[in-house]
Design a protein around this nucleic acid. Structure first.
Lengths: 174, 174
DNA sequence: AATTTTATACAGTTTAAACTGTACGTAAAT
DNA sequence: ATTTACGTACAGTTTAAACTGTATAAAATT
């Protein structure tokens, strides 16, 4: 090993450590984050065995991790002439990839939950239309009001994250 | 129990279930999220024992959960004349509270990590200035370029989330 | 066709988080 | 001053996630 390799490797490890923290905030698990950063820093496509060696984890763990990252569309499987093993490469465009998929995740979730809550709301409305015990009505009213605020909360989240889409921004700039 | 209480309680549970999913996306644990929603739906301040009963979890679990929520500034301890037990109340202003603290969390983290990465960068620059083995230089260059991209990524995140601050928005509207 | 190499499914293990019940210190009530 | 009630620290338990090693199926090489 070259005299400065150890020094360089330490820096490498530090970068992986720090950058991973940020990627974990995009809802990646620590293991997924480290795997992505390893791949990203390496630049060239890597095989499962190389990743396994680089991170000191089992090949199975790499296989699982890569599967997740590919599903998240953050890593791509590439083909190289004469290479038998599967090769994977991290997407170069960090910002666009992470922001886009993250915002989409928020929008999907918020819309789904807003829908579920609206269903509950209409159930509640039906119930309120029927004749109710005197005491019951207040409770229904109470929950109904809260529900409306919660639904409003989801709508606001939706608007906010819609505005954040990089596509929307760049479309207006270009 | 009144004839329709069961029905109402079921709806209650459903709302807790759905709304909690959204709050989990704000980096609350499932338990913290359910606790907050319970408190929020109840409206009135609650004691640890009431929460414990409402969620069917131990009082200790409530104590821990509340501690987190208070630290996150999502729940407030209130005082009521003649009541001996501690009372806690969920903040009414869902959107502002959650968005503000969430964005702040992002900004703090991104800035912290950007700082760490810049330190690594300058270490690397110093190293590059020293005479290097012929092969080493490329590797250093390689890592250096990646590092710059990663730092740029953090800067972009920072800008994006700064723009999202509700305070910035509303200040310009009002 | 037989052999070797590869990725992954699966079962078992390790590790970390959430939760419980008891015990204790503090504060209110008697 | 004594008793009762309250919140939480702590230790132990349960539960879920991450990880490993082996086994298997598929694909490439010979």
């Amino acid at each position: 090993m070259a005299p400065n390799s150890q020094f360089l490797e330490e820096l490498h490890t530090k970068v992986i450590h720090e950058f991973s923290k940020t990627l974990e905030m995009f809802a990646l698990s620590p293991a997924e984050a480290r795997l992505f950063v390893t791949l990203y820093l390496h630049g060239e496509p890597m095989t499962l065995d190389e990743m396994s060696k680089a991170l000191g984890k089992s090949k199975t763990a790499m296989s699982n991790g890569i599967k997740s990252l590919v599903e998240l569309n953050l890593v791509e499987r590439v083909w190289k002439k004469g290479v038998r093993k599967d090769l994977y490469q991290a997407d170069e465009n960090l910002y666009r990839k992470f922001m886009t998929s993250y915002i989409q995740k928020w929008l999907d979730a918020a819309q789904q939950q807003e829908h579920s809550l609206k269903e509950i709301e209409s159930t509640l409305e039906q119930k309120a239309d029927q004749l109710q015990e005197p005491g019951e009505m207040e409770e229904i009213e109470e929950l109904y009001n809260r529900l409306r605020d919660v639904i409003r909360f989801h709508r606001l989240i939706n608007e906010k994250f819609s505005d954040m889409k990089p596509s929307a921004q760049e479309a207006s700039i270009k």
